[in-house]
Structures are given as structure tokens and as C-alpha cells.
Simulated scan of single mutants.
Amino acid sequence: MKWPEHGGQPEMMKKLLKAEELEVLDFSANLNPLGPPQWLQRELEAQWKKLLYYPDPNYSFSTSALAWMERIRDKEILLTNGGAEAIFLATKYFEGKRAGIVHPAFSEYDRACRHYHLQVTDILTSHEEDFRLPMNQLLESLPDLDVLFLCRPNNPTGVVISKAEIKMLLEQGLHHQTFLVIDEAFVDFVPHEALTPLLKEYPNLILLRSLTKMYTIPGLRLGYMMASEAVINEIKDFQIPWSVNGLASAIAPLLLKDKNFVAKTVSWLEEETRKLRAFIESNDFYLSNSSVNFYLLQDKRNPEKTETLFTFLFQHGILARHTHNFKGLEGSHLRLAVRSEEENDKLIAILKKWREQK
């Protein structure tokens, strides 16, 4: 089967599995089920006239507002067309050089490196080590790399690399002239863990953000990059003009300003994850040490039957995310989103059925 590259494609999966009439709950997309914020539709309607004019090519108002909220200078931030453009722009900065990617990880890092002809070294974390960073291997690899790509919190595991480990890599990176590109697309779900303050200490740090996940706006395409002024200036020169539309630019500062929405989401996530973890672990399933709104799942009793479990869930109305295109996993686990209480309860009921028949 030719598996889709990303989650959130239930119609494609129904066609692939020849079940187009089946109603399924989409657990494959790791978006916030509480979002978007209630005020967003009203604000988009109020801002619709932005579509009648070319945006400010520098996105000056939005950039200043975001920089103020992040407590950095305007010249250290770049608005992007979603997290994907941020990834490709950061990779372009190292075109033709040497990169390391810690896996399993979002597939677009590898795709961007191939597009810009980087020589890639794959560094694998493992289920047996609960997907912790292989620090000794990384520290040994840094002298041979121009850039190291990390996903924090990691997609698909949900594991958060400690700030101490990041600082150790940055310190060694300074010595070896190695950059760290860290994708923080899901950091809003663990707000106390943001790395923004480290930008003042480490000119070899590039942070990527996406507003897609927390605010459930994948169709609006909105993200940003933070780095030193010198790095942002160079990357800005090869960003496509007007890559961010005027409506998205106008909305960006309003999203980050809504701290109550983020706090409500984090509170909801803690409660739902606690309940899910209690059931899953007490029924002999593996659940990754996730701090965000998704996790890896595997049947400990039947780890070789992950694809059978995928089909079983699908037949019972749950679409999980396969992991066939995650290096280091190759289909050995399923990734599932933390959904609403009602939807999570349905998942638990179906996993009970799976366990009863096994």
C-alpha cells in the first residue's frame, strides 16, 4: 500500500482501504480539538478587507507584535507560510552542506535536506530507550555537521528534550560551528519549555514555530522563525515575496495574545492524557512519554501486529496515523491524537475490544 505522507487525510485512507462509506473519527491529525478560538471566525470576517490589498512585504506590524510577545527584537523574527516554509527556509540556509536529523521525526526535514542537496546523517532514537536523545552519539557527530535538526516536542513521539541537553549541544555546536535548527511546532502545549531565551546566548540556534497545531488553523498556513539578526537577514533575502497572505499576517498577533485559550488547552490536555495513560498502561499497551496532544501506541503483547491493530481501529471507526514513513519506526507503532473526552472514550472502548479478542 502507498501510505499517505501525513496524517489528517481520512478520505484518502478510506479510498485506500476500500471503505469510502465508513464514518471514522480522525485521530491521525495532531490538531487541538478545542480549537480554533471562538473569536477567530468573527475576527477573520472583520479583517476580510485585507484581501483587497497587497500585504506589507515586511509584515511590520505583525512582526513587531510577535517579537514583543516573544521578548526578542523585530530583526530576530521572520513570519512564514506555516511551519513547512520555515523548515525549507532554514534548510536553504545550509544548502549543499552537512546535516544531521534525529529520528523518528517529521518527514519534511529529510525532504527539505534532499531538496537543497544536504548530505544527511541519520541519528536514531529507540523504543527501548523511550526515545531519549543518544547524547554521546550526538556530541561525537557534531564536529562533522553544519546543522542538526531536532523536533521538540518530538513528532511523532511527543517526547520533550530537556533544556539542559539542548544547552549542551549548543555549547558544543559553538565550538564546532554547528547550528541547531529546533522545530517547536508543538511547544505551546508545554509553554514552560520554550527555548526562546536561549537565542540571546547562542547565535547558532534557529527556532521554528507553527500556529497550526494549537489553534487548529492548518488551512491558514501561519508560522514563524526566530534566530540572530544576521541569520534572519540572510534567510529573508531568499523568502518568496508575499509568501504570507494579509489575512494570516493580521491574525498572528491576536492568536499569541490569547493566553487564556492556551491555558485552557493545557489544562484539558493534562486531564485527558492522565485518563488515557491510566487505561493504556494498565492494559499492556505501550504509550510514549508524550507531553503533547499525541502519542505513540503499540500493543506490548503483539508488537508485530501493529498494522492489524491499525485496520481493527479503522473498521471500528478510528483512523490512527501509520508510522511507515518515520525512520526508526517503519510502521512499528501507531500515532494517535488526544481528542475530546467523548472521542477518547470511544477509543478506549475499541481498544478494550481488541484486548478481549486477543
Rank of each mutant, 00 (worst) to 15 (best):
V102K: 10
E128H: 05
L255D: 06
T80H: 04
G35M: 05
L269M: 14
K2T: 09
I182Q: 01
E184S: 10
G82A: 07
P156V: 00
L25P: 02
D237I: 00
Q298C: 14
K50A: 11
R42L: 09
F326Y: 14
R274D: 08
T63M: 08
I123R: 05
A84C: 03
L336K: 05
P37D: 09
D284L: 10
K327F: 06
N32Y: 12
T306C: 12
A86K: 02
Q41V: 05
M226E: 13
G223K: 00
E108L: 14
P197E: 08
V190P: 02
K275T: 08
S28N: 12
F186N: 00
E129G: 01
W48K: 13
S291Q: 13
Y109E: 03
P143R: 13
R274C: 10
F149T: 01
F261T: 01
K14P: 01
A65K: 15
I123D: 06
L52Y: 03
E229W: 06
S267H: 14
G219P: 01
R221D: 07
W354C: 11
K300I: 13
N136A: 14
H324W: 10
I182N: 07
N154R: 12
R73K: 15
E272I: 11
G35N: 10
V338C: 08
E304K: 14
Q41L: 12
G328M: 12
I182L: 11
M12N: 08
E11L: 13
L17S: 05
A29D: 12
K75M: 12
D110R: 07
V338Y: 07
L142S: 10
T306N: 11
P33R: 04
V181E: 07
L347C: 08
L334R: 06
R71G: 10
S290E: 04
R355H: 13
L180R: 03
P253W: 05
I232W: 11
L198P: 02
E20C: 05
W39F: 15
V147F: 13
P153K: 05
L198A: 08
H192E: 15
A84L: 15
D56N: 15
V231R: 05
